[in-house]
Amino acid sequence: MQQLANLSDSELNQRLAFEGLDLQVGPYIYKIKTNLPLVGSGISTLYKNFNLAQPEAFIDYNVAILSKGLLQRLRGQSDFLFDNTNPFDSIPTGQAYAFLEWGMNWCVSLHTNEYLKLHAAAVARGDHTIIMPGVPGAGKSTLCAALGLSGWRILSDEHAMIPPNTTEVVPLCRPVSLKNESIGVIKRFSSNAIFGPVSRETHKGVVAHMKADLHPQSHEKKTLKARTMVFPRYAKDETQRLSPRRRTESFILAAYHSFNYSLLCETGFEAMKTLIENVTCYDLVYHDLDWAVNAVDSLADPEPNP
């Protein structure tokens, strides 16, 4: 399969500007268009090793981020377009890359419902797959990025997608979104982290995305069986701990952080029940990232060699 890296710069720009760049992202195909050089360079950095869709494939999501017309250019604004219509208001062009990523998340959050979708990161090492639900600010993405830089395969930073009545996770690897202090934390954690464009003064503060497909199997489509569910929480002044968590509470919290639990109705309930009954749940309270990564490692490797 052809990767984005096989395209020359001019081919890539040609596609982004005209016919659209068709990228295979997990089970979905996005067609991306943009006339913004900043967005083009972000895509070429962060999606370098993504597969291009087969020619003539069915496109799931048509997205674009464009600055159109003289007036909009002068104002320094751009629009995110989905199906050629604008679901959001215009945004400052300097934040366009972050909005492209958010818009691409939004496509999955709103417009697909064949899976139970948890607002969660998912990572795997060997045959051990972990789902990590988390409220914004809980440190889920930071931990996900750190695990990705420590040999774990990142399955998703945003959507853990579970086919109903299974405990499988459908990989949907896309760049990891890091905000504010987390960006520096991850840069200090590993010099291998590769970042895309930085967007400042967004409604979430400073945002930068990290290349997520660091593992050789990052783009395999095969689903993976979830074994564990970890609820991370960054807390500066608390004792760090990895402690078992009750299934009932985990059910409620995971359902609360699901994009479509209530939309799926009984199917959603049954799907969540099957999942929760078959995973072990933990709370992870941390402030030191190295400690947290070791703690998660210990789940995959209960008896590490001395």
Partner: peptide, 21 residues
């Protein structure tokens, strides 16, 4: 239709059902 096409229709129907509830 292929499942990759059908899933978009199914998703819209689920949204419709949810709106009715």
């Amino acid at each position: 239709l292929s499942p990759s096409v059908t899933r978009h229709f199914q998703s819209a129907l689920l949204i419709h059902e949810k709106q009715k509830r």
